[in-house]
Write a protein that binds this DNA or RNA. Structure first.
Lengths: 347, 347
DNA sequence: GTAATAGTGTCTCTCAGACACTATGAG
DNA sequence: CTCATAGTGTCTGAGAGACACTATTAC
């Protein structure tokens, strides 16, 4: 029997037994009436949760807020909130939540890519009441520290590797972020290319917090988990771990056939920076020369600005000034970039 | 609904109505109340809608129900209904709706692929009240006539071409279902089986009602549209037209990289039948010889049964007996099948 | 100087697409 | 017989991946 990833098998549900509502009458009638008085039904809360991804110092980070009360008090969770019934669309609600948590305003916010990821509504996912969450996925360029926004007890960018060690579903031999990048570990994670492991990615987790990306000023009163320190996997509240995993897989797939990787970068960028995005999100090193040629060969992916890097280049180890590009007008990459590996994902 | 005594804040969130984004007070306090009594919020109804696609006589059909009351009384709509709060997951709700509408029971229903498509929650999409719909997409093998299920005034399989003439986004020169086999065009294609396909699809609208798919006992009072007669595009109720368009695009993309096309077929099938699925869903003719080789070369896509067609082959105009295959165990096609042309279209 | 990067050239292998061709069976 | 299909052989062009190589800059 087929069925891919998120597919569900169908089982026959029976419901009659426990249905407290009228037995004889046509369900449609009930629905009709319920349509006018939804309170005849058990209420379901509708929220949006946002998985906002960004790159800080060469590592993927996700925006998280600290919960100030039970359940999961003190735990990290995805930012989100209730949809304002009838007054905003789901997309608008997600954008609003993102803006509140990041403190971004219009101009900067426009550079953020936001798309719907999926909905989560398993019974019991919130112990208090039935809640359906519509999850959104956001790609943002390097952002300043998260605002402990208006309605967030504490917000911070957490390194993804602290939450999803190894990187994700579909157990692959290639462990994206942690493994293979550490000095002591065996050569290359994927095994493909032992040498060119990018040092940036390597030191990212630590180096970042200390120097380039000092963690956001923690909400003072919150004593609990500061930004997690590398090793022990952080468990997100509710089913947010699963949502995050789904989001990561979506992000990895999406940059294959769309130019959205550029959404992680400044308006102008070098091919090397773009390659770093792919390497970080996919968790695998890419062949620099071929990547370069490939990107320039896909119509509409990037367009030249005619300029080159001029200022001091952070972390540069030397080399010629790279040319600067901006995002092109293509919405789909054609042909798509191919993720290395993939073999294992099939079975 | 259950509530736990000590509940605090469902999530840092302000109550929608007030949302003073209160200066001093901790938002979490308000959350406390909000989480505790969701009725403090304007209620949002949560429903699932199912886009069930099947192939009947060489044309894509979608399951639809006729609305028995306002709004959109008499119009066709996607089958769907309210999620039973706290007692079923979204997936289960979708499966339940599909079962009710198709009248399918366990064994047959297990062969149906069902996956979440996306959520729709624009304000005003239902004139009566705020409703968020989680849409599902189903691929089903040729199914019998739709049951006027327990809660459906009338249910029927409508030819997609009657609703989305021309087929959908990305307006292509290739018109999916209507475009005829151009004599002189290379062998295969939508034009493959000129006899069965064309006329069928064309007359399907009428023929179906009279012979092959007699409309489910029409809801007597509903005078409105019988199964739409070919030409005038049917407008679905609510935003279901857009949902259907999204579903079709998803289906077209999904069969590229998953073996889900086989979900439209019987447990065993020929390569020619499989190709007909692709041609119908993509609305474009494929090169028969290359398709054949390609399918057999993708690991895990199909596996041979060792048998060949034996019975009378409907619509056959001669030729050798085709070998029979069944679906393989791959979840992803590797490398993927490529859709002809491709242009722009991204969400 | 060394080391690392930007960018180009070019080879090989895979695969998609096109065509040619044989074999089979319905009418 | 004709004609449409099932299935195989094979060529060509595009493109991915690998490697070699030059040029440029930080240290």
């Amino acid at each position: 029997m087929r069925r891919t990833g998120a597919a569900v098998g169908i089982r026959r549900q029976h419901t009659a037994a426990t249905d407290p509502r009228g037995a004889g009458e046509r369900p449609d009638e009930r629905d009709f009436l319920a349509g006018y008085d939804p309170r005849a039904f058990d209420p379901i809360a509708v929220t949006v949760d946002v998985v906002a991804l960004t790159l800080r110092g060469g590592a993927l980070h996700v925006l998280a807020v600290r919960r100030g009360g039970p359940p999961f008090e003190g735990a990290w969770a995805l930012p989100g909130g209730f949809v304002r019934a009838g007054r905003e669309s789901l997309d608008e609600a997600a954008a609003r939540e993102l803006a509140e948590e990041t403190g971004l305003r219009a101009p900067a916010l426009d550079r953020v890519h936001l798309e719907q990821l999926g909905s989560y509504g398993d019974p019991g996912r919130d112990p208090r009441m039935p809640v359906v969450s519509i999850a959104y996925l956001a790609f943002a360029p390097g952002l300043p520290d998260a605002h402990a926004g208006s309605d967030a007890a504490g917000a911070a960018w957490l390194p993804l590797e602290a939450i999803l060690p190894g990187g994700q579903p579909a157990a692959e031999p290639s462990r994206p972020f942690e493994q293979g990048r550490r000095p002591g570990t065996h050569g290359g994670g994927t095994g493909r290319r032992p040498a060119p492991v990018r040092p940036e990615a390597q030191k990212s987790a630590e180096a970042q917090r200390s120097a380039e990306a000092p963690e956001p000023a923690e909400s003072p009163e919150a004593a609990a988990p500061a930004v997690p320190s590398g090793q022990a996997p952080v468990r997100l509240a509710f089913d947010h771990g699963r949502i995050l995993a789904d989001a990561l897989e979506r992000a990895r797939a999406k940059i294959e056939y769309t130019p959205l990787a550029t959404a992680f970068l400044a308006p102008t960028f070098t091919i090397g920076e773009l390659r770093a995005v792919y390497e970080t999100v996919w968790g695998a090193p890419l062949h620099a020369a071929n990547f370069h040629r490939k990107v320039l060969s896909v119509p509409g992916f990037v367009e030249s600005t005619g300029r080159t890097e001029t200022d001091a280049r952070p972390g540069s180890r030397g080399g010629p000034r790279a040319r600067l590009y901006r995002s092109g007008d293509a919405r789909l990459l054609h042909p798509a970039l191919l993720r290395p590996d993939r073999e294992a994902a099939v079975r």
